[in-house]
Amino acid sequence: MKHSGRTVKHSKTTITELMIPSYANFGGKIHGGILLSLIDKVAYACASKHAGNYCVTVSVDGVEFLQPVEVGDLVSLHASVNYAGRTSMVVGIKVIAENVKHSSVKHTNTSYVTMVAKDDDNKPTPVPPLILEDKEEVRRFVEALKRKELKFSFNQKMDETKSSLNLEQALDMLEDQRCIVKLDGQV
């Protein structure tokens, strides 16, 4: 059965969680792994709402921690489906940390998570088309397409490098780098 599509608003999801001391590292900042777990959780909630099915994470792109998150902050993760392919979706997530005591709000990172919908037999299953209702949603869809193209191109170039780089070229490239190459006892 062909689905007529779902709007971006249909699956928009926000999760807010208090950052507690057990989430902190030795420096008193929240572990990046805690934030990654929350990113994965909100991506699943958003993607499964759009797909109407169980979804799995395929990749997490663009995780760059712009500012630290502190114990006591309220962290809100705002997720929306930015792109829908045949069986996959790209969920954009904006992470905001709010210190209620100081009335400060900071954007800590934006991430893009690719999710794939699965059927009852654990096979990829088609997702509804994404209905774009404003310029911002169109821009995000196009940006997701562009990121997908760039990722494909990057992966192709890396594969070419793996297959064509010889040891002499590799050693030349490493000459001014902070590494020590020890091959068969040579330095």
Rank of each mutant, 00 (worst) to 15 (best):
V69E: 05
P126Y: 04
A117Q: 09
G72D: 08
I39R: 01
R147Y: 05
T125W: 00
H50K: 08
E98R: 14
T125Y: 02
V187G: 00
S4H: 14
L35I: 13
D120E: 12
R86Y: 06
V113C: 02
S153H: 12
T87Q: 06
D120P: 03
K106I: 15
E17I: 01
G185F: 06
M89Q: 10
R178D: 15
V58F: 01
C46M: 01
K182G: 00
L66W: 05
L77S: 11
P128A: 08
V127M: 08
S111P: 02
V90L: 04
T110G: 07
P68N: 09
N53H: 14
D120K: 14
L77F: 15
T110Y: 08
K9F: 00
C46L: 01
K135G: 09
L183W: 12
K148C: 02
D61Y: 01
V42W: 05
V127A: 06
V71F: 02
L150H: 11
V142G: 07
V63W: 11
G27R: 15
I93G: 12
V8I: 07
I96C: 11
N82V: 01
M1H: 13
R86E: 09
I93L: 10
T14A: 01
L171K: 12
R6Y: 04
V71I: 10
S22R: 11
V116D: 00
V116E: 01
V105M: 00
T13M: 13
D40V: 02
V60Q: 00
Y112P: 06
N109F: 11
N99H: 05
A79E: 06
I180N: 15
